[in-house]
Simulated scan of single mutants.
Amino acid sequence: MVDQVTGIEVRYFAAAADAAGREKETVDLAVGSDLAALRAALIERHGADMERVLSVAAYLVEPGQGGGELTRDLTYPAGAKVDVLPPFAGG
């Protein structure tokens, strides 16, 4: 039996966009995947620079309507849209 797969829209900001070489992409994962699975897929796709960024990043799950859920809890369900937010500096 094949797992059902869903496309998760990932948007990158600041250092995460630099590590990915883009501002957004779609990542296919099994339905019901958590942020740990998404993190692993992003590291596999983008390598050590992304791993370094994700070690300090937060995730905004389902941004937009209702503001979404900001978390660093990798057991949190990934949802259909995830923003990767590294720490920001400046004002």
Rank of each mutant, 00 (worst) to 15 (best):
residue 62 E to G: 01
residue 54 L to K: 01
residue 8 I to W: 01
residue 30 A to Q: 13
residue 73 D to C: 03
residue 65 Q to T: 11
residue 11 R to Q: 15
residue 52 R to G: 05
residue 91 G to K: 03
residue 41 A to M: 12
residue 65 Q to S: 09
residue 88 F to Q: 08
residue 79 G to I: 14
residue 40 A to G: 09
residue 26 T to M: 10
residue 85 L to S: 04
residue 64 G to C: 11
residue 32 G to F: 08
residue 90 G to A: 12
residue 89 A to C: 11
residue 61 V to G: 01
residue 63 P to H: 05
residue 21 G to P: 05
residue 58 A to E: 10
residue 79 G to E: 14
residue 10 V to E: 07
residue 45 R to P: 06
residue 91 G to P: 05
residue 70 L to T: 09
residue 7 G to N: 14
residue 39 R to P: 11
residue 48 A to F: 09
residue 36 A to V: 07
residue 44 E to Y: 01
residue 5 V to F: 04
residue 76 Y to K: 11
residue 32 G to W: 09
residue 6 T to S: 06
residue 24 K to Q: 11
residue 37 A to D: 15
residue 51 E to R: 01
residue 86 P to V: 02
residue 50 M to E: 12
residue 78 A to D: 12
residue 73 D to K: 13
residue 86 P to K: 02
residue 38 L to W: 12
residue 87 P to L: 03
residue 2 V to H: 14
residue 29 L to I: 14
residue 91 G to Y: 02
residue 59 Y to D: 00
residue 39 R to E: 15
residue 48 A to Y: 06
residue 16 A to G: 09
residue 74 L to Q: 08
residue 86 P to H: 07
residue 84 V to I: 15
residue 62 E to A: 06
residue 47 G to E: 13
residue 46 H to G: 04
residue 76 Y to H: 14
residue 63 P to W: 03
residue 49 D to G: 08
residue 41 A to F: 12
residue 83 D to H: 02
residue 69 E to Q: 14
residue 61 V to C: 03
residue 57 A to S: 05
residue 84 V to C: 03
residue 39 R to H: 15
residue 57 A to V: 03
residue 61 V to A: 00
residue 21 G to H: 04
residue 25 E to T: 03
residue 34 D to W: 03
residue 71 T to H: 01
residue 37 A to W: 13
residue 4 Q to P: 12
residue 85 L to F: 04
residue 76 Y to A: 06
residue 14 A to Q: 10
residue 71 T to W: 00
residue 24 K to H: 02
residue 46 H to P: 07
residue 73 D to P: 04
residue 32 G to K: 07
residue 79 G to R: 15
residue 39 R to W: 14
residue 59 Y to H: 05
residue 84 V to R: 03
residue 24 K to N: 02
residue 64 G to W: 08
residue 17 A to R: 09
residue 45 R to N: 06
residue 68 G to P: 10
residue 75 T to L: 05
residue 81 K to W: 12
residue 21 G to I: 10
residue 59 Y to W: 15
residue 34 D to Q: 04
residue 54 L to R: 00
residue 77 P to V: 09
residue 91 G to A: 06
residue 14 A to C: 13
residue 65 Q to H: 07
residue 18 D to E: 12
residue 16 A to P: 09
residue 59 Y to M: 02
residue 25 E to S: 03
residue 84 V to D: 03
residue 38 L to A: 04
residue 15 A to S: 12
residue 65 Q to K: 11
residue 29 L to E: 14
residue 59 Y to F: 15
residue 61 V to M: 08
residue 77 P to W: 15
residue 12 Y to R: 05
residue 22 R to L: 12
residue 44 E to I: 04
residue 6 T to L: 07
residue 17 A to E: 05
residue 67 G to E: 13
residue 19 A to C: 00
residue 66 G to H: 04
residue 48 A to I: 12
residue 70 L to S: 05
residue 56 V to Y: 05
residue 76 Y to C: 05
residue 12 Y to V: 08
residue 15 A to W: 07
residue 39 R to N: 15
